[in-house]
Amino acid sequence: MMQRSSEWQPSATLDVLTARAALFASIRSFFADRKVLEVDTPLLGHFGVTDPHLSNLRTHLQGQSQSLALQTSPEYAMKRLLAAGSGCIYQLGKVFRNDELSRRHNPEFTMLEWYRVGFTAEQLIDEVDALLQATVQAPPLQQITYQQLFIDVLNVDPLAENAICALQQALGDSPELADWARQEDDLDTLLDGAMALVIEPQLERSVPIAVTHYPASQAALAQLCPADSRVALRFEVFYQGMELANGYQELTDASEQALRFNQDNQRRQQLGKPEQQGDPRLLAALQHGLPDCAGVALGVDRLLMVHLKREQIAEVLPFAIDRA
């Protein structure tokens, strides 16, 4: 087949690829200094994620009917290592997400994920701060709660009884959001829309910001806050207007984890998405016992975008999906 002449060439310049290699090296040295063990769990797994808004790419081994899932994050496998007594671990490697393609998304991207045994979410946020300072010379990180952020930007309390109504109104006032927001009666969809379309673009760009205490309905795999069960011990880090990292005080209770798998699948059903079996090996590992720990996943391509002030993820990848 004839190819357009530029398609063989890298998406990133060689200078950017040199900076990319240096970033990998500085991440590895950060964790080596802290005695965190590097692991490389499989990208190909027998089970995918139940998360309603993530979609696994799937493939088959020759002669086998059951599909294998390319992992959307190494979370389940890393937690099995933690349950097996690995101690603190990190993984720097590729992950895959179906249906994610934009100037900030490539279906195959590089993720840094790490778990700290005995850490609280608060201590892990401090370590994310230290990593950003050490690797991309970021200024010190600032923190705000999810609730306070919504109140500051939209004047809406996301935890209040009337949050659905208040968000419909606040978002409905904007002509580009009104069409769907005015008739949206699902709180999480309204919260996601408010966060992604209104709040994120307005976040202070010059410093990393950790948004903490996400609503319990968005706990994902985080523990609920013991002092206030309306919120979860989940945080996200934004920098230069971009979502960089997502972290949890990890859920260690196997039965609660099984319940979350079921809730995810109920939500999938509502959204008309196929059900996904919750990974029984993760549940078995939690039953065996996951040590108290906090973990976080960070998009490394985006970190490089922030570091080098690039607007397109393709500019920091050797070959973006269109040239892969």
Partner: peptide, 30 residues
């Protein structure tokens, strides 16, 4: 443009030109 929180609902932010009035407006879709 697709806009998606890592763990959340994705949206499409779209610029459209109205073909009769010629106006260009922004819209978002789930």
């Amino acid at each position: 443009e697709m806009v998606k929180p890592g763990k959340g609902q994705a949206f499409n932010r779209v610029k459209i030109r109205k073909l009769i009035s010629g106006k260009v407006v922004e819209k978002t879709f789930k």
